[in-house]
Amino acid sequence: MSVELFLFYMAATISLVSTVLALTRYNATHALIYLIISLLASAIIFYLVGAPFAAVLEIVIYAGAIMVLFVFVVMMLNLGAQGDTLEHEWLKPGMWILPTFLCLILFMEMVYVLSGSSHLLPGTAVSPKEVGIKLYGPYVLAVEIASMLLLAGLVGAYHLGRRYLMDSRGED
């Protein structure tokens, strides 16, 4: 077993375990931290597969911006210990049965699809330069659309967040 394969399995295990933990915590902050760990593990897998640029993006944007945004909002809501007791009420063990069963079937179907392919082909690394050329070549329209999407998200978030801030200032 090569080093890469071993590293891959280890990163995959970390990713899986931390995702499971993230989904089952009562405390929201704990769950978010575990998710960040999962994303870091994914970044390692990206690097191992030969997409270092994607790994960097995963850490910087996904774990670094999006998850931090989550953490900010959790802090802003400021639920505290009361939030934990609410979670205890909401998350009864019996509720896991049906969704787990359904998703297990879904997973098995996906594995059935994947099992038709040949296995363990070695991958090739793709350098960031190639990615850049492709991005501003054939995919330049997709880039423009993505930027407009982000603009829309920006405006929406600003608008939805604005009232809250104004009202809370008014209440003071």
């Binding site: 049906l98 359904l102 079937i105 879904l106 179907e109």
Partner: peptide, 8 residues
């Protein structure tokens, strides 16, 4: 839940 069931 219903969407996932349908998907399956």
């Amino acid at each position: 839940l219903t969407m996932v069931t349908g998907l399956v």
